[in-house]
């Protein structure tokens, strides 16, 4: 059951990612990205991270992608244009992507033993467990991240402010 879901949503995620690259229109690409984000959420859920899965849906599939779609709609972005630069990007991009994939896959395979492993559906991290870790063991990094976000918000306010 878990394996079947993993295969279905893993394939959906990969298909969405490929579609994101292949689509000509930005809104179709944005919608493919929503599919990718949501399938990732299901994969998190299969690994027992229920809070993370729902946070992924609410924050990424919901809020952030709505903003993407909103901006694309507002600017009325048209079809992708092919220029000489984009051909160069193909030439450099595809080998670059393969190289990056190779390096990452190689690293994961060599370090596999030290990462430990989680079996699908074997473990359930409740919101309570997550809070224990986040607000006890990792309190300082959490607060530092909060301040980083606060700075970003202040920056956005300063940038968007009208000059009087």
């Amino acid at each position: 059951m878990h394996l079947a879901l993993f295969i279905i949503f893993g394939l959906l995620c990969l298909g969405g990612a490929l579609n994101l690259l292949l689509q000509q229109h930005p809104i179709n690409s944005a919608l493919s990205l929503i599919v990718v984000m949501s399938s990732l959420a299901v994969l998190y859920l299969l690994l027992g991270a229920e809070f993370l899965a729902l946070a992924q849906i609410i924050v990424y599939s919901g809020a952030i992608m709505v903003l993407f779609v909103f901006v694309i709609m507002l600017l009325n972005a048209g079809l992708e244009e092919k220029t000489r630069g984009s051909r160069a990007a193909y030439l450099a991009g595809i080998p670059g992507m393969l190289a990056l994939f190779g390096v990452l896959a190689g690293t994961f395979f060599t370090l596999r033993s030290s990462f430990g492993s989680a079996r699908l559906g074997a473990y359930l991290a409740t919101t309570h467990d997550l809070a224990q870790v986040l607000f006890r063991n990792l309190l300082l990094p959490f607060e530092v991240t909060s301040i980083l976000i606060l700075v970003a918000i202040l920056g956005a306010v300063v940038l968007a402010r009208k000059e009087h």
Partner: peptide, 10 residues
């Protein structure tokens, strides 16, 4: 519920 609502915006 919050997640489903946020997807409904689309």
């Amino acid at each position: 519920i919050l997640g489903v609502t946020s997807i409904g915006v689309y």
